[in-house]
Design a protein around this nucleic acid. Structure first.
Lengths: 131, 131
DNA sequence: CAACAATGATTACAAGTGTAATCCTAATAA
DNA sequence: TTATTAGGATTACACTTGTAATCATTGTTG
């Protein structure tokens, strides 16, 4: 399975949010997203089409002809992909250990109550199953 | 500041371990590393030189002439770089939230006691300063 | 001293990426 | 029905990346 580029990932994101989706659905979602994030970035029609084609070639998404236009759907689970990427980063820069990543992240980025609660839940879950 | 590629990062890794270092030191370290990891990968002399040049251009490392050869040193702190990369990944795939990354990682990769302890330490530290 | 060897600089080159423009065909509107 | 348009397919193109090879210079060795 080939690598998915950053731009391709953003297209996949839009697709994961709702699928099957037409190219136009996806373009619209990308742009409303960009707008919401206050970015001056505008996704060009042709650019997104290209990315969709590449994703199809990489077998990351599928499509089915609906009359004249296509409806796309992801072939990858979002969680599988993000986990693979996280694991790979942790492998490459932290020898596969989670703790240093968390420590570094916490130092620079403010954690909030929700984050802390989520982490606590994770921990107690872990402790339930181990030792 | 331009992006640092994967191959460039590996070179930087070798440099962070001990610097200033000559090109040969770095090549040696990369190869002993690769060997230790049982990889069939061999870092070619010329390849590493190219990467060093690119890192210099990107202002990620500096060098000083020592007689005929150069001694390189990193211009980036390892921790700054890894934190930036982690944060960027968390931003891109988890809306900036740490917990989902941890959850996904925990599901696929066994966490160990050290990881758990590190998380606990983080939490109690956080609680000391908040609320 | 002359040929060689080491080392940094320059050049190479295919594959991947971001970002589109152009081409082609079918649907649509005048 | 004919001109226009909305897609999808194909082509473009500069930049990055991985992976070196070649060039040029200078120190080293016979």
């Amino acid at each position: 399975m080939t690598e998915i580029s950053n731009a391709e990932f953003e297209v996949l994101e839009a697709l994961w949010q709702k699928y099957p989706a037409s190219a136009n659905d996806i373009i619209a979602k990308l742009n409303e997203h960009a707008e919401a994030a206050n970015q001056e970035k505008h996704w060009h029609d042709k650019t997104v089409k290209t990315l969709l084609n590449r994703l199809v070639k990489k077998q990351a998404i599928s499509f089915e002809k609906q009359q004249r236009h296509y409806l796309y759907s992801p072939l990858l689970e979002r969680e599988d992909y993000t986990t693979k990427e996280s694991t790979s980063l942790i492998e490459r820069m932290f020898s596969g250990k989670l703790a240093p990543l968390v420590a570094g992240f916490a130092k620079k980025n403010e954690l909030n109550k929700d984050d802390i609660n989520a982490l606590k839940a994770l921990i107690s879950d872990w402790e339930k199953h181990h030792d």
